[in-house]
Nucleic acid binder design. Structure first.
Length: 283
DNA sequence: CAGCGCCCCTGCCCGC
DNA sequence: TGCGGGCAGGGGCGCT
């Protein structure tokens, strides 16, 4: 991996497309492979990593790798390993002999000599063991629909937003409304739909919710498709996040001219998050 | 319930 | 050049 790629990757926040790419990327390397050992070098993530993993997982095989929102679910017979990548986390397949670096917090080693390695400099991620139905877990049971699923559409958003006074941006970033819409894609989708991020969710018309639902699907699907092109090199960890593959219209472009009307883009902070929009094109 | 602000943590950037 | 302070950011959680 070149220095340039390492730098870009360290800045990459795992949004839903990156999590989906990770899900697809690790699946063939971990499903059906016998687990030999688990090493937790740094258990202090968002919540402590259970030391029981080292006893529970060896001799097991992951039977499936699925995703719910930005949570990755590695299923095996006695339970499910739930992983969130937080802001700076990543999962890679490496060789056993590959020595861990400072931020490589967890290794799950397989009998074939490969290792599933969890890396997370900022440690906002988590790795939790769930025995029983993972979808009934506290962190998953109240989540809204998947943005690329059939339950997510304009009528759903419109119904859900009645009498809501919170800004539309906060509304679509609320995981109880819809999962996986992070700050970058919320900014982008609102620009594409022509909606001011501060507009109250309850004051967005049905027609504009149609445009918004289409925009959300579009930016996420496009990024996942872009991520898919790097899948074959997943183990070499040279994949770049999907949003580098598509032009960002507003995110990170504060004070630069709007690509539609040339008006300088405005940046405000909403809930502590950078919010960039065009005062002319987004009402 | 709805809405809002805090906080976990480190890398990066800026100013002196 | 080196160092310290400020800040960003996902999202659960506690408080109003």
């Amino acid at each position: 991996m070149t220095q340039t790629q390492a730098t870009e990757e360290s800045q990459a926040m795992p949004e839903l497309p990156e999590v989906e790419t990770t899900c697809r990327g690790i699946a063939p390397h971990v499903i059906g492979k016998k687990i030999r050992s688990v090493e937790v070098r740094q258990p202090q993530l968002r919540w402590p990593v259970s030391t029981e993993l080292a006893q529970l997982l060896p001799a097991q095989k992951f039977t499936a790798v699925t995703r719910r929102g930005k949570y990755l679910l590695l299923h095996c017979k006695p339970g499910t390993l739930m992983i969130h990548l937080g802001m700076s986390g990543s999962l890679r397949i490496v060789e056993t002999r590959n020595p861990p670096s400072y931020h490589d917090h967890v290794d799950i080693a397989f009998s074939n000599g490969s290792v599933l390695r969890y890396t997370d400099p900022r440690r906002f991620g988590c790795m939790l063991w769930i025995s029983g139905d993972p979808l009934a877990h506290k962190l998953l049971r109240s989540l809204g629909p998947e943005p690329l699923g059939e339950d997510f559409h304009d009528d759903y958003l419109w119904q859900k937003s009645r009498n809501r006074k919170i800004p539309i941006k906060a509304f679509i970033m609320d995981s109880k409304v819809v999962v996986g819409v992070g700050n970058i894609y919320a900014n982008e989708a609102l620009f594409l739909a022509g909606i001011n991020p501060r507009r109250a969710a309850g004051r967005v018309s049905r027609e504009r919710y149609h445009a918004l639902s289409v925009a959300i699907r579009q930016v996420l699907a496009k990024a996942i498709k872009a991520g898919g092109t790097t899948l074959r090199d997943f183990t070499n960890s040279d994949g770049q996040p999907g949003y580098f593959k598509q032009s960002l219209h507003v995110y990170g472009r504060a004070s630069q001219p709007c690509q539609q009307c040339k008006t300088p883009l405005k940046e405000i902070r909403m809930g502590g998050r950078s919010t960039v929009y065009c005062v002319q094109c987004q009402k």
